[in-house]
């Protein structure tokens, strides 16, 4: 197990380096002069020159690369042009919005998606299965902005149970903070619930056909043990992968959901940066998203080995 973990961790280092390299190259993939592109079409030569100096674009490529990596090691992602403050600070400020949203959505996904998939598999080809599969399909195919709007109309406008949008910091009013999280989390989670329920159902159906499930029954174990212990642990192997990807996507922030609910999270930070050609922020966002996904993959790989001992060897 130790060597497996060590190998996995070592393997993610080059990927992380590649992610940083690609984030850095953003600036140089811009056709023409990046400084001119950032400054916009109405800018004077002096303004373009100022940006060039500010971003260090006048220096040789390798010096720029060294500066970028040097900055990274000190936690410096550069300065935002639009916000006129360090990129790192801009991201950290928005984490209290995106992180709890992602965690709530993940919790909903796990608590609803897995049981729904298991129940559908156990009642395969009955109305229960059809209902779960149908709803999962709906969850996957309904556009999240539409769903978000419908939830606002129903719970915010008609029933007036929950705010129609906006974010209240936890430190200001914990109850209002929690209420402001409900609808966005649900809107974010629905797609993931649908995906996870379908994967869980399919995998469970396959596992239920396995000989070891028959053995568990032959041993006279109660049904909840056959399903909840012997079958479920095998189901978790592929399901953990899906959960890892889902959580990665949730953490990168959702532009649509954050916009509809007026939550200034990481998704909107990156969207605004793209519209305003704020390259340092785009770079930082790309780096953040890429790093999160690489780290989550690492966690998933380690979880694999915890669940399935065969993984610890071989590879």
């Amino acid at each position: 197990m130790f060597w497996y973990a060590a190998r996995r961790i070592a393997a993610s280092v080059p990927v992380l380096l590649l992610v940083t390299l690609i984030s850095f190259s953003m600036m140089h993939l811009v056709p023409g002069d990046p400084a001119a592109a950032i400054a916009g079409s109405g800018a004077t030569n002096a303004e373009i020159e100022a940006i060039r100096l500010q971003l260090g674009l006048d220096k040789p490529f390798l010096v720029q690369l060294a500066t970028w990596f040097g900055g990274l090691l000190q936690g410096d992602l550069g300065r935002s042009i639009l916000l006129n403050r360090p990129v790192w600070q801009a991201i950290v400020e928005r984490l209290p919005i995106t992180l709890p949203l992602a965690l709530f959505a993940l919790a909903l996904t796990l608590l609803i998606g897995i049981p729904a998939g298991v129940i559908a598999a156990l009642r395969a080809n009955t109305w229960v299965d059809q209902a779960v599969t149908g709803l999962a399909m709906l969850g996957v195919s309904v556009p999240s902005f539409w769903l978000a709007l419908m939830l606002i109309v129903l719970f915010g406008v008609h029933l007036e149970w929950l705010p129609t949008g906006g974010f209240v910091p936890f430190s200001e009013d914990p109850a209002a903070w929690a209420r402001s999280m409900v609808l966005p989390s649900i809107s974010l989670a629905l797609l993931q619930i649908g995906l996870l329920a379908r994967i869980t159902r399919g995998t469970m159906l396959e596992v239920l056909r396995q000989d070891y499930v028959r053995t568990a029954r032959a041993k006279g174990l109660p049904g909840w043990m056959v399903i909840g212990k012997h079958a479920l642990k095998n189901v978790m192997v592929p399901v953990v992968t899906v959960i890892g990807i889902s959580f990665g996507l949730l953490l990168s922030g959702s532009i649509v959901i954050e916009t509809v609910y007026g939550m200034p999270g990481i998704g909107r930070l990156i969207a605004n940066a793209i519209f305003g050609r704020d390259y340092p922020v785009i770079q930082g966002g790309l780096l953040l998203t890429g790093t999160i996904l690489v780290l989550l993959n690492l966690v998933v790989d380690l979880l694999y080995a915890v669940i399935d001992p065969r993984v610890r060897y071989g590879r």
Binding site: Q210, T215, V237
Partner: peptide, 18 residues
Amino acid sequence: GREIAMIFQEPMSALNPV
């Protein structure tokens, strides 16, 4: 599992791998 027990043909797939 108490009074009547059973063993199967494929001992590999009949044992739970995890």
